[in-house]
Design a protein around this nucleic acid. Structure first.
Ligand SMILES: [Mn+2]
Ligand SMILES: [Mn+2]
Ligand SMILES: [Mn+2]
Ligand SMILES: [Mn+2]
Lengths: 223, 223
DNA sequence: AAAGATAATTAGACAAGTCTAAAAATAAAA
DNA sequence: TTTTATTTTTAGACTTGTCTAATTATCTTT
């Protein structure tokens, strides 16, 4: 059984940020990276790193980077599991739009109740991905990754279904809707402009659009 | 439209306690009553009363009692609405038992999202009462009260359906289960022992039990 | 009505989480 | 290899919510 870690909501948010910034725990992360992602000052991050170190979820030697521990990784995955299950609930049961779920899930994810999450998972039919295409870790923290590639990294001529998005801000997601880009659609990378990195896409073999590099860097297709 | 009141979770919990202690806002409440219900010290309550006064949700003159304002009442009802809707969700959709919902709802009630509550209400089919038989205020804070009386206040010979419970602690609710007392059953008060106030009940015209005054003071039947 | 009991408030402290400003360490440039 | 720039940490402060101990106000009882 999992050890009794007791993180405050603030600590959970920082830990999750570190987990994501480190590419699922593999890289070291800098104080500034964390502060810009959390919209707090570097000084606040330094304070928080001490607390997280004391709770053994990260390793941190001053002025060197931060690395998440195995314990921290498993805690982070548990929070992410809750976040994504709530997002599924909001879309599937309460008919939220995919651009409306992130903010609310950011709060719901901190509710502590083993039973609640078990039952929610069951109620939703044990979903494997959230409304943004991100995989939902199981109760043991295992994630099942589907091979995918950013449109910006794919080669001209590549084809795949749209499996997930990196950005989840309402503005970005609403723009994707407007472009006709939604999870599951078939995308073919027809051309790339070397000048600005924008790309020409064929959607579901019938609609052709051009998207900026900024968009291409935030949309994944199956590989 | 409602004015922009911004209460912290702690402030919301105190306000709700004051609302309940004052019998829905009609009575004055003492500092000690609040402190014992909230499991905090009287000094903490004094501090909190200043904050709630500043936010115009209560009226408080030092050493005199506390009275909830119209604004406070409407805020309290809104929190109670959320609390009870979440309780219904937990029982109806996630199959929680009625003794498991209160604690989790105590946290869920603080999540702020107009859309979330509107949609939750809809998802649940606009329920009128929570799993403990308590009425759910509508979005305008209106409650629809059914006439009811505590078993301890009813006359011998009185009969009615069990409509709600006052206590919601797991231990009490589990005890009611064991006695066979559940919402909706038909109860007849057959006798009362003057000595200790315990009462003899006939459940659904076939099962006879004796319950203590403590139990009788926590169960309502229709009047 | 004065004394004693009870209730409520203030004073002072602490932890969590944040900030600004200053200092120190590391990295980059000249 | 100095000097300069950037990054990170520390120092000190503020807010919220809590506590204990001391003080003050109100209520009860002779
Ligand atoms: Mn969060
Ligand atoms: Mn998501
Ligand atoms: Mn609460
Ligand atoms: Mn209830």
């Amino acid at each position: 059984m999992s050890v009794a870690i007791d993180l405050s909501p603030a600590e959970e948010n920082y830990l999750k940020a570190i987990y994501h910034l480190s590419a699922d725990g593999s890289l070291e992360v800098s104080t500034n990276d964390i502060s810009s992602r959390m919209n707090t000052r570097a000084a606040s991050v330094s304070d928080m790193l001490k607390k997280l170190s004391a709770k053994k979820v990260i390793e941190h030697q001053p002025y060197m980077g931060v690395k998440i521990t195995a314990l921290g990784k498993s805690e982070a995955l548990h929070i992410i599991r809750k976040h994504r299950l709530w997002e599924v609930f909001l879309v599937q049961k309460l008919h939220f739009h995919w651009d409306q779920v992130h903010e609310v899930a950011e709060h719901l994810e901190h509710i502590r109740s083993r039973l609640l999450i078990e039952r929610l998972d069951e109620h939703l039919g044990f979903p494997k991905v959230d409304p943004h295409g991100d995989p939902i870790p199981d109760a043991q923290g295992r994630i099942n990754l589907r091979p995918h590639v950013l449109i910006s990294d794919a080669e001209v001529g590549a084809e795949g279904t749209m499996v997930s998005v990196l950005e989840t801000s309402p503005l970005f997601l609403q723009y994707l809707d407007k472009l006709g880009l939604r999870l599951g659609c078939l995308l073919k990378l027809q051309d790339r402009v070397t000048f600005d990195g924008s790309v020409e896409l064929l959607i579901d073999q019938n609609k052709q659009i051009i998207v900026s590099n900024e968009v291409a860097r935030n949309v994944y297709i199956s590989a």
